[in-house]
């Protein structure tokens, strides 16, 4: 009985490590972006993440021809993909102060056009404002990057609410919605001219709008 054919000799071409390929690619891209920025070409910061993911993909495709397993790079790519996907769904505007804030304006003139907090609980209590003299279509924006928004409207007032939560929950006059990318829009209750227009949002957290 003849011996089976010997296995083909291993390739003699030296296989570069994919990590080195990707590192080189990332440095190349970063250097090119930096150079373009220095030359006056405006490079928005939010393109860096997707560019890094493309570099990881190109590195994997290039390394695939040497037949090596690239588990580390695949894990890196999956992490980058998840982070970019969450960033696409959830906008966390980290502008403003940090902590808990409560605002209680007593007249319509004291009401700001917008209230913002980076991280924390923000309460805007408008319940002390008389319903009658509300100007036509008073607009108020209340925004928190990470945390809870509570807006208390004057009892009996006419309010059109646009409530958003990247990840979390909105409760608008008892109507609850939750999950990813929550976007709730209530109609004006009475459809009159003297209505409040309220935009309340959080990146991650909870938005509650109720009557006082």
């Amino acid at each position: 009985m003849s011996a089976s054919a010997p296995p083909p000799p291993a390739t003699t071409e030296r296989a570069p490590r994919a990590g080195r390929l990707v590192l080189g690619g990332v440095l190349l891209v970063l250097g090119a972006l930096w150079l373009l920025d220095t030359l006056g070409v405006e490079i928005p910061g939010h393109v860096v993440g997707p560019s890094a993911l493309i570099v990881v993909g190109v590195g994997l495709v290039a390394a695939a021809r040497w037949g090596r397993s690239q588990a580390g790079l695949i894990v890196l790519g999956v992490i980058l993909t998840v982070v970019l996907a969450v960033g696409t769904v959830v906008s966390v505007p980290l502008t403003g102060e940090v902590g808990d804030r409560i605002y209680r304006p007593r007249t319509i003139d004291d009401v700001r056009a917008s209230y913002a907090l980076s991280v924390g609980n923000l309460t805007v209590d408008l319940s002390g404002i008389p319903v009658g003299p509300t100007p036509e279509r008073a607009r108020v924006g209340v925004r928190v990057g990470l945390g809870q928004v509570v807006v208390i409207m004057p009892a009996g007032s006419d309010v059109a609410v646009h409530a958003k939560a990247g990840i979390g929950q909105t409760v608008v006059f008892g109507v609850e919605e939750g999950g990813f990318g929550v976007d709730y829009q209530s109609p004006s209750h009475m459809g009159g001219l003297n209505i409040w227009r309220l935009d309340a949002s959080t990146g991650i957290g909870r938005v509650e709008v109720r009557y006082g």
Binding site: I54, V61, A62, G77, T81
Partner: peptide, 9 residues
């Protein structure tokens, strides 16, 4: 996986 990451990126 490389092609998937390129498309996603």
């Amino acid at each position: 996986w490389g092609l998937f990451f390129i498309a996603a990126g």
